[in-house]
Design a protein around this nucleic acid. Sequence first.
DNA 1: TACAGTCGGGG
DNA 2: GTGTACGACTGTA
Length: 800
Amino acid sequence: MGKEKELEGWLLDVYAAPAEIPPVGEPSLPGVVAWLLGDDGLRHRLEMPFPVTFYAAGPPGELRALWRFLRQGSTRVDLQRQERRELFSLQPLTVLAVQVQAPALLSDLFRKVSTTFPDLTYFDSDISLPLACAARWGVFPLARCRVHPGESLAAVDSPWDLKPPVPPLSVLSIEPDCDPEHAPPRELRLRAWTHRGASEDPSTRLGMYRLTLQPARPLLINLAAILKRHDPDLLLTSWGDNWLLPMLIERSQELGLPLPLNRDPNCEIAHRPERSYVSYGQVIYRDRQVHLFGRWHIDRHNATLWDDYTLEGVLESARVTGLPVQTAARTSPGTGISSMQIVTALRMQVLVPWRKAEPERFKQADDLFSADQGGLVYQPLIGLHANVGMIDFTSMYPGIMVRFNISPETAGARPHRADELAPLESQAAETVALAPAYPGSWQTMAAPPPGEGDGLVPRTLSPLLHKRLELKAYLGNLPGWDPRRDIYKARASAHKWLLVTCFGYLGYRNARFGRIEAHEAVTAYGREALLRAKEVCEDFGFSVLHMYVDGLWVKPEAAGEITRPADYQSLLTAISEHTHLPISLDGIFRWVAFLPSRQDGRVPVPNRYFGVFQDGSLKVRGIEVRRHDTPPFIARTQMEMLEILAQAPTVEALPEYLPRAFNHLQRRLQALRRGAVPLPDLLASLKLSRELEQYRTPSPAARAARQLQQIGKEVRPGQRVRFLYLRGEPDVHAWDLPEEPDVRRIDIAMYEKLMRRAAESVLLPLGGGKLLAPPLQHSLFPPRQRRQKLPAVQLVEKGS
DNA sequence: TACAGTCGGGG
DNA sequence: GTGTACGACTGTA
């Protein structure tokens, strides 16, 4: 390679350069391909050497056999005996280091080695190339990079910078005119723009196009021209993974018309199959994926948390986790955390154990026992309460891990129990000099920078925790109208999710860096901290209405004295001093209602509540509007009722607002009976938990899925199925069937029942029960004949 | 009454 | 690309 000029720009992607098996002794081997969005405005494909190494440990004889095996193999390797550190042991380990020049050859070679020598222990053998680059070069997606082409790559910024320079990404979005699951689309709508860190900004719009899907030839020719013209860094699609790109690729092959979806002509487009897996008792469905090279493809509908944090959140996750943008967009935050731990381990020069794809393993009885020790939950005091402060620990579990240095290798062999107070105090005293905590004072979380004795997990989480707090603090200082708010909110949200999921990994028995003792230590500290907070609250003259893992709902006993956030400062300071964890006031509820169990009105259920903060904003948990299976019509009406109630300036004024909310409910019910509610608003959307054949008593969702199956549309476990409730047979209508549903058969009574339930959740706890008087219960399922004659308004008016 | 199926929650 | 919680609730047999 010749002497090329030094380049600067943003790193878009890295991946292994494709490699054929070269003859032994080949002088120059493919390494890694890096794509740079240069400051010159050009996109540079750079190839750089990147030798990769895996390690094997075991009995000397076995290692010697591996040595001979590799020497005779067709792949050129460099072999070395080395001493290296393992995470869980202080003694260095003697390993055989196996270095391969071309990273693309590693996985095949390793597969051969591990099947031939299954008894050896392997390390660093399944680390994805981008993570290896992140560890070695300090690079990450969108890092500002300085490059000496052909030699090296180095980041000049860090993922922890609060305000990184924003690259002018060129984006092409493609979406069909309708959901292809529901009906066959007729045309594609395309827009090209330059992404400058905000959601689509019309001022950066570069072009808009419409292409009809049939006939295919002009479609492909035009699309190819548009791709060439805009040369997007990001192809942002709707249903690109499961419909658009597979369809385009197929047409392009059928017609022999090339379609330059990839920017890198040396690579084949990568397809990943769909899959279903179980996580935390929930079945998760991941649709198939289409990954591009030299350019990103993101399918909005197959991107994790897209609705929550959009492109900004995806880019932020990629920056901090080191995962390629296309991967970060589609994986759970848990994968992100796991990746960060791997990079931390590599940087600590610690061997990363090979994670075998193990067959399913049954939980042992003792695991079940210990796993039950989770967060502390208190039953709330049922009913309506005025002037309630909600306080919660800031990122409690990650905060505990960082503050008390809890990590699989540092969490002691002895079990932690709730009654062991000593570790909490002594460790805290040794670890940090505590600053007083005030609401929103993020500095108190500032634990010391990672030091010699700090474990892998705290080292990984500490910068994440700090950046989230910095982001929140920065957001707090931006005025409400500032357009940058959306960007920083999305980034903060990405951090929130990464932090939330990191805890689960500590207890996961198959995790590379998991350990049940560490998991238990965290929950034990958490429970202890919450109990201490409760004591402090009571000492300060608050009664505790409810506690939930990391939050407390408290009511000052001295009425009228404690009503402003500032009145909570001394309480928060005291809790922080007693727990060594930062805590803040989420807000003060004008009023909040804790709901009882629906089965037994005397039994409280945790985390089913709604209330209005002093600024008029609502906080709602656990009720219908929060559930994904609630049809939009029901959810929206319930939310509108809540919004009406939230207008009550005081709890005393609430009774005046109940009839208004009730009237709104009636209007919506009338609309329902008139047939004035659009059908999509009546769609229930439920997740299938298993294969259709495995249902013994098919649920409505399973019956709807059966309809889809009969026309050849398979619904996989973890996928949602959308359907309408109908009267008669069949009693459901799957939305994605080709034929229209019979609107006369919409099961109005069913929707009334759902609506009534949702209305009860809102009205009953506020004393609105008399509005929903019992005679109605009979009218909910009247004989069909009678129902026609019933007046449009079935609910009883106020006062009757 | 039993049990099968489904969901939320974190922030 | 990880994870078979836990408990509430509903509908059906």
